[in-house]
């Protein structure tokens, strides 16, 4: 962002229990890693949500754009063999 006069932007990922996935929570501004972790603690773990925090500079994340969507995702639409539609389920199986 050209008009953003604040510190660089970071993305925050929080793990809510040991062994669980780190899920994206949002972003923040910070001058460096230490400050990013402290700010993440203050912004995203106020209600005891976290066990562990990752912070990643936003510019280090490679992301697809809206323009990529057609090339990246649409080809999957007509390949129904990629989804498990043709298996016979054993009778009585639950929770699938």
């Amino acid at each position: 962002m050209k008009n953003d006069t604040q510190f660089p932007q970071w993305e925050v990922f929080i793990q809510t229990k040991n062994g669980g996935p780190f899920e994206h929570q949002g972003s923040l501004h910070a001058a460096d890693k230490k400050m990013a972790l402290q700010n993440a603690r203050d912004l995203y773990t106020r209600r005891n949500e976290g066990r562990s925090i990752w912070v990643v500079p936003t510019e280090c994340i490679a992301a697809t754009t809206a323009d990529d969507a057609a090339d990246f995702f649409d080809p999957a639409n007509d390949k129904i063999y990629r989804t498990p539609n043709f298996y016979k389920m054993p009778q009585g199986t639950k929770n699938l």
């Binding site: 604040q6 501004h29 700010n39 912004l43």
Partner: peptide, 11 residues
């Protein structure tokens, strides 16, 4: 001085 620090100060 900026949003994140504002919240830290209030905390």
């Amino acid at each position: 001085p900026f949003l994140e620090e504002d919240i830290a100060l209030s905390n």
